[in-house]
């Protein structure tokens, strides 16, 4: 648990820098797509595909980070009315469910998806890069979800910090 509280701030910082950089590159990439249509005899053909792949990475990595910052949308109507003990139990149950989802769909499903696309050598149509690299973000974000989920489970024991930890 000590190690976890040491890792998380460093991880957060790295993730934030990575995500902000990808977002900036996304804007530049699409601007380049527009510009090349007017200045180059042959417009760049890879930008559309690259932009879509950036969006997949930003979305999945970003949603793991948004889980950590409790930004995902939910319905708090019932949990708001609960007794504090019941609320803590419900919040814990929520974390467990998210961890199970991440383990099953993102890690197991994502590893299998990545494995199949690498094994069967699928390439992206324009850039020609192995599609496995695009899908690799699924299991990565799954691991982040689990890490943040376990951290949240440890933190949420006191009813007073529940507001912050409501999913």
């Amino acid at each position: 648990m000590k190690t976890l509280s040491g890792i998380i701030p460093t991880l957060n910082k790295a993730l934030r820098v990575l995500l902000a950089t990808m977002m900036a590159l996304l804007v530049l990439n699409v601007t380049w797509q527009v510009i090349t249509r007017f200045v180059l005899p042959h417009p760049s053909s890879f930008t559309e595909e690259l932009a879509r792949f950036f969006l997949i990475w930003i979305s999945l990595l970003g949603s793991a980070y948004a889980f950590h910052t409790h930004s995902h949308l939910g319905f708090d109507y019932l949990t708001k009315k609960m007794q504090s003990n019941a609320a803590v139990t419900t919040a814990k149950l929520g974390y467990v469910l998210v961890i199970l989802f991440a383990l099953g769909v993102l890690v197991i499903g994502g590893v299998n998806l990545t494995y199949i696309t690498f094994l069967l050598k699928q390439e992206s149509p324009v850039l020609g890069i192995p599609m496995g690299y695009v899908y690799l973000v699924v299991p990565i974000s799954g691991c982040l979800f689990i890490l943040y989920g376990v951290w949240g489970l440890i933190e949420v024991k006191d009813p007073s910090n529940l507001r912050e930890h409501a999913l």
Binding site: H42, P43, S45, T47, E48, V126
Partner: peptide, 14 residues
Amino acid sequence: VSMVNTMGGAATPV
């Protein structure tokens, strides 16, 4: 892409 560019057009991804 390379076919259209070879013919002289400007292949454009949309």
